[in-house]
Amino acid sequence: MKDTVDEINPRKAWMSVLAKASEGRVAQLLDAAIARPEFAWLRAPEIGSTMVRARAGATGAPFNLGEVTITRCALTLDTGEVGHAYIKGRNKVDAQAAALVDALMQTDKAEVLRAQVIDPLEAEQAAAKAARAAKAAATKVDFFTMVRGED
């Protein structure tokens, strides 16, 4: 029997990386890697919202914080694989590129796309986070105690 967790986790990971890519980046990397295959829409890109929830006191009961704009779409390749995209923001072109990569990651193109789309995106996202973290670290307070004169 196939381990379903193994099948789900990598997909969850790459879909998350694709969703967090900056504007136009997925399309750019995808087009540099391979020629786009034919596909049919299962759900043409549409813009909507998701209610972001949080927890009272960070860990308690959930409450509704506010909505975020989301673009989603679903498509199927001629070979039958289905790709989905749910990405923050209102960019239908980005959603299409993300769904295409999601579908192609289930084909024999996976290795190429892993190396040329997913891994570079992940590295860029990590680098951007690290750059911001380094600026935050520079504002970290180093306390020192003044030596007091009495004694």
Binding site: S49, T50, R53, A54, L65, V68, Y86, R132
Partner: peptide, 23 residues
Amino acid sequence: YRTTLPRFGASEPVDTGKMTCDR
């Protein structure tokens, strides 16, 4: 504008313990 958007669902509660903190 918000009222014109279809609601796709709700998120999992965000985990602020996982925040990458600027401050």
